[in-house]
């Protein structure tokens, strides 16, 4: 799960072009203040998560609640990636 969070930080830094996101804590909101994810950077993030972890967040989570914070997203992805044998 911490490894997943680290990888998501790297993806966030890459899709936003903001290296400072490599150091954000787990309770950082992804929308609004904090990461300020929008439809463009959000789409790139979900695409990269699907590619790396084989987890399709948008297909499973109608309201995209998983994107509340870095921690909630890492937990969502970690739980599903482990089932698929993708983690570690």
């Amino acid at each position: 799960m911490t490894a997943v969070a680290g990888e998501i930080r790297r993806i966030l830094a890459a899709v936003t072009g903001r290296p400072e996101l490599l150091g954000i804590p787990a309770d950082t909101p992804l929308f609004g203040a904090g990461v300020a994810l929008d439809s463009l950077t959000g789409t790139l993030l979900l695409r990269e998560i699907r590619r790396q972890f084989s987890v399709d967040v948008a297909a499973e989570d109608l309201n995209l609640d998983a994107l509340a914070t870095l921690g909630t997203l890492a937990a969502f992805v970690g739980a599903r990636a482990a089932v698929g044998g993708e983690a570690d």
Binding site: F31, G32, L37, D38, S39, L40, G42, T43, L46, A58, L62, N63, L64, L67
Partner: peptide, 10 residues
């Protein structure tokens, strides 16, 4: 239309 849902969630 996932990009639209992202905009709505944001």
């Amino acid at each position: 239309n996932v990009p639209l849902r992202l905009a709505l969630a944001a």
